[in-house]
Simulated scan of single mutants.
Amino acid sequence: MELTTVWFALIAVLWVGYFCLEGFDFGVGMLLPVLARDDTERRVMINTVGPVWDGNEVWVLVAGGATFAAFPEWYATLFSGFYLPLLLILVALIVRGLSFEYRHKREETEWKGRWDLALIIGSFVPSLLWGVAFANIVAGVPIDADKEFTGSLFTLLNPFGLLGGLVTLTLFATHGAMFVALKTDGEIRRRARDLAVRIGGVAAVLAVVFLVWTQLKTGTALTAVVFAAAAASLVAGLVSARAGREGWAFVGTFVTIALAVVGLFLGLFPDVMPSNTDPAYSLTTANAAATTYTLKVMTWVAVIFTPIVLGYQAWTYWVFRKRISVRHIPTAVLAGSSDTAS
């Protein structure tokens, strides 16, 4: 197998990891005003992702870095053409990170409310725009002979792209509700489980429409099988949630997101950024790749460090594996303490 194909697959794996892990972080943030009834319950929800959100976010940094190093032409065209959406995502992620760090610094209700709003918006914007971006990448965008994007922001806001955004938005919300149900106890657990089923029904309808549309655009026999498995996994997850089996429900949405991303990358290959101006202008794993020497060096680095990173992240999840509830939240927060440490 050529190294270009290997690195295309590795980048796909990185995006799978990012959407599956950061997806429930986004879902928890978006559902903060829906599931939590008071400040204590909001702190419970924040604490479910507090120890892991920054580690989950690393996946997108590695995916971006790997794209820059392995496929510099892809990186250049993508980040120049999608500059405004990616900038909005970056700002949202920064604001979201600040909300985790600054919410607990003062006890005033207004202060916490503002940072809660920052967390909600910082979760909502990437959830929507990542779907818009990936839908457009798979469907193809206007690229000229110089490998430059010739469209605008409004080019990306087409029906297929917007549907992709709604799919990721609802899937992440469902995934986040499943995670809250898995990680909490008491009344908030019940509310999260019920909400996951309701939002999941909407996500299932949108996802089926989007995946069928994608299949008609770029699909193969293999992508059809993968997309069908993704739909079946989502249904199984919702059935498990209704039965009160939160662990299997979370696995269901996790596998759904993973298979959906895999299917999109399978439909994309061997292109990395198709051109709908002229297929001859499309960026592929061959014409967008770095030198063979660069790919070899990157491969050795990945072989050495990837197991270390995965092991550390797995250990983090193991340490913070237990459920939390309102009884674990102290009634008073000491000055300088953190929500995520309480």
Rank of each mutant, 00 (worst) to 15 (best):
V141Y: 04
V205Q: 06
L153K: 07
P307A: 07
G29V: 09
G252P: 02
L162I: 14
T316G: 06
I46W: 10
D25F: 01
Y18W: 04
T48E: 04
L14T: 13
N287I: 02
W115L: 15
F250L: 12
A258R: 02
A231L: 10
M1R: 08
A135M: 04
I308C: 06
Y293T: 15
W213F: 10
Y312F: 12
R191I: 13
D54Y: 01
Y102N: 08
A249V: 05
T306D: 10
D339L: 06
W300V: 08
P330S: 06
R245W: 07
L117K: 11
V91Y: 09
V255R: 11
Y18N: 09
G252F: 01
D194Y: 00
F250A: 12
N276F: 01
L31E: 08
L129H: 02
V49S: 00
D185I: 07
A207H: 11
G131M: 02
F82L: 08
R198L: 14
K183D: 06
L166P: 01
T316P: 00
L157C: 04
L78N: 12
T174R: 02
E108S: 08
A181E: 08
T299C: 02
T220H: 05
T331V: 12
E148G: 00
F71T: 03
R189Y: 03
W7F: 11
L128K: 02
V309F: 12
L169H: 03
S240C: 07
V132E: 06
R193I: 08
G50L: 04
K147N: 15
L78W: 10
L266K: 06
H104W: 10
V225W: 10
F26P: 01
L98P: 00
A341W: 14
G164K: 02
R96W: 06
F320C: 05
G219E: 12
F269T: 14
F19W: 13
F124I: 13
V138W: 09
A332L: 11
L238Y: 08
S123D: 09
V16P: 00
V209C: 07
P159E: 15
L87R: 06
S325A: 09
K296W: 15
I11R: 00
T109I: 13
P51T: 09
P274N: 12
E110V: 14
R42V: 05
A236K: 09
W300K: 05
L238M: 12
A70T: 02
Y83V: 03
I257R: 04
G81N: 07
E107I: 05
E246P: 00
F8S: 04
A118Q: 12
V239K: 11
P33T: 09
F265V: 11
M298D: 15
L32M: 14
D116Y: 06
T67P: 00
F160G: 04
W315N: 13
V95H: 01
S337M: 13
K105R: 15
W15A: 02
L3T: 07
I11A: 07
S123P: 02
A70F: 04
G131N: 03
P33E: 13
V125H: 05
T184R: 06
Y312H: 04
A145H: 07
P126W: 13
M45V: 04
Y281E: 10
A9L: 14
L163Y: 04
L266C: 04
T214P: 01
P126L: 14
R190S: 15
E41F: 03
F8A: 11
N136I: 05
G113K: 12
W300Q: 13
A66S: 09
A196K: 00
L162K: 03
L266T: 09
L234A: 13
T67S: 13
L162S: 05
F210Y: 15
T155R: 10
W315C: 07
